[in-house]
Design a protein around this nucleic acid. Sequence first.
DNA 1: CGGTTGATTATCT
DNA 2: GATAATCAACCGT
Length: 174
Amino acid sequence: MHGEVRLRLTEVEAYDGERDPASHAWRGRTARNAAMFGPRGHAYVYFTYGMHYCLNVVTGDEGTASGVLLRAGEVVAGTEVARARRPGAPPRDLARGPARLTKALGVDANQYGVPLLDPAGELRLERAGDTPGPELVSSGPRVGVSREAERPWRFWLTGDPTVSPYRPAVKRRR
DNA sequence: CGGTTGATTATCT
DNA sequence: GATAATCAACCGT
């Protein structure tokens, strides 16, 4: 959650640090990905496509650079605030996609590197209820990555309407 | 519906 | 100079 807006996560995607060709950390540490190499439980926020922010949770030990991209969620509190940030969006689309999620939450470069497990933090990750069992979770190829897209490291709640529509990675023309 | 395209810039080659 | 862990608008069917 961030401020008044609370999300129930429905879709995430994993990246395996420097060993993973699809990871931002693949070519080693840079100014942009420095937070991925930091302690687990902190935020790695990146800016892409000239206009979007995406939010990751750092999951590996310090120096490891693994992370999980938060791809989608269902807004369960603070709907008014989220709707004001995404005017015109149908309720189920408020956080349906990694950039939509940060927009609805109000996350941007200001949250780069902040701790997510601090109960006093504005932006934080909380456990709510039991971890869903395998019968409720699906997995498949990651989205938008051109290398190693076949790794089935995107996970989502089966049948949940707030999961982002699957779009296979394609080479862009120009 | 589904497919295509422009937006817009930090980052890396 | 090209690309990118994307989105929304716009097309034709």
